[in-house]
């Protein structure tokens, strides 16, 4: 995170030294673009604020720990799609679940959809991509995530032909 501030700072200083007018223009553009998309950001934040308390990590942990791996994979992909969690929480949680015997394919379905499919960020995505492309992107991502989960299951010997 600090790297981001350092990079932004350096870029700004270099740009300012090179051409102050251009830099001022860049900041103006940055603000304009941000202000234009702010309402969609607001919608996303509200959606996240309301939904996340309904699916706390403990609930996710319990749901993924089901006995049936196919059912676990399905539930995992659903929870991953509607949830939002930074990597530094999701992966340690996954590590704990693995040590408790949750199959790799279930973890895979959960973490991959967590990253690729965004139900809560849909209001934002729609503004940028349009409704149909955004829907299709999420749908394709869900399919890819499920395929990755199944192949992970084979690779770890959790399912066999």
């Amino acid at each position: 995170m600090i790297v981001l501030y350092i990079v932004t700072g350096i870029l700004l200083v270099v740009s300012w030294k090179a051409n102050a007018t251009k830099t001022r223009k860049a900041l103006k553009i940055a603000w304009k673009r941000f202000a234009r998309i702010l309402p969609a950001f607001g919608l996303m934040v509200m959606a996240v604020a309301i939904v996340l308390p309904l699916i706390p990590p403990e609930f996710i942990a319990r749901s993924l720990g089901m006995n049936n791996r196919w059912l676990g994979m399905t539930v995992g992909s659903l929870l991953g799609s509607i949830s939002m969690m930074p990597g530094f929480i999701a992966y340690p949680l996954s590590g704990i679940l693995l040590s408790q015997g949750v199959p790799y394919m279930v973890i895979s379905a959960f973490t991959t959809t967590l990253m690729m499919v965004g139900v809560l960020s849909f209001p934002l995505e729609k503004q940028y991509l349009g409704t149909r492309p955004a829907l299709l992107r999420n749908l394709m991502s869900l399919l890819i995530a499920l395929l990755v989960a199944v192949i992970t299951g084979f690779a770890f010997g959790e399912i066999a032909l």
């Binding site: 501030y5 830099t23 223009k25 860049a26 900041l27 940055a30 603000w31 941000f34 950001f41």
Partner: peptide, 19 residues
């Protein structure tokens, strides 16, 4: 978590736009 990242991202995008 958004405020920490998004302003920097848009500043870099603005610089990208002009340079």
């Amino acid at each position: 978590s958004l405020i920490k990242v998004v302003p920097c991202a848009f500043i870099i995008i603005g610089l990208f736009d002009v340079w």
